[in-house]
Design a binder for these strands. Structure first.
Ligand SMILES: [Zn+2]
Ligand SMILES: [Zn+2]
Ligand SMILES: [Zn+2]
Ligand SMILES: [Zn+2]
Lengths: 146, 146
DNA sequence: TAATCTTTTGCAACTGAGTGTCATCTGGCA
DNA sequence: TGCCAGATGACACTCAGTTGCAAAAGATTA
């Protein structure tokens, strides 16, 4: 069997110093949110992050979660995924690039990476006269029952 | 030079009889919207379809456009594309499957098709134990200036 | 053709995700 | 500890899309 796709390895970079270096204050809500994102293995949405943050600090507000996600996205510290039929979901950046397969029954997100597909995308864009800035590849499927 | 991607050919099926067969009434707004979708070569959003429809019948409402897009989507007569940072955009179904490259400067949508990528997606899903129901591949780029 | 019976429409009120405003609060620094 | 620009919580607002409802209009039959 040929190995078409590899499972990307997890990562856990420290963004606090990056924020500090960019002149951005390390506040209590931001610390909490960064910790949540650093710990999790899944792709939570803003509301889910808010709920997890509430457990730690009851006074945190949903607006702050939204604002922080936006800030972190602009800094390149996280990636935003707008999977279909739902709110944006987030994950820490800093790991290897990967794409996603979404389990339509459970909502689970499975990560994969295909160098061959990445390469083909480049070729296609070049032939069309374009440079790719970024891309989105999402497979929506159901567990094969055999 | 190897041909990595081909440009899909356009098509113009007649959905009125399909609607009728499904027991769905062919109303004036639906006729107009179907004609607009049948004529256009681009990927308009609901508001744009509404504006084009208004030219033909001043009394049409935006809700009806939204409702009709939903209906046609459920029937499989059109495809909805939620490109990033904007409202859903639509196109008639019935042609060959293709994916999209979005020009980030102009918003233009360029269609392409890569059998190799389609095939790799299948292999990846199979290896992960899934059947693909559908997928989304969007390249976001800028015209190469050389 | 008109009567009838649904389905569909236009309108307006509503929803959900996210953004903007602003008075108050606080992290970083002296 | 005091200062103050930047950050926060609360809440009003936007935007895309949905929903409820009375009136209108397809399809079907007489
Ligand atoms: Zn990729
Ligand atoms: Zn991921
Ligand atoms: Zn495809
Ligand atoms: Zn298309």
């Amino acid at each position: 069997m040929t190995k078409t796709a590899t499972k990307p390895v997890p990562r856990k970079p420290d963004y606090e110093k990056a924020l500090r270096k960019a002149g951005i204050r390390i506040t209590r809500p931001r610390k909490i949110i960064l910790n949540i994102l650093g710990e999790t293995e899944d792709h939570p949405d803003a509301l889910e992050i808010f709920r997890r943050a509430e457990q730690i600090d009851k006074s945190i507000s949903l607006s702050t979660v939204y604002r922080t996600m936006k800030l972190l996205e602009e800094m390149g510290a996280i990636h935003r995924h707008a999977f279909e039929g739902g709110p944006s979901r987030f994950e820490q950046a800093g790991g290897d690039h990967h794409d996603h397969l979404i389990d339509m029954d459970t909502g689970d997100v499975i990560e994969f990476r295909s160098d061959r597909i990445e390469q083909l995308q480049q070729e296609i864009a070049r032939q069309l006269g374009y440079d790719i800035v970024h891309h989105r590849l999402e497979l929506y499927g159901r567990r094969r029952k055999d």
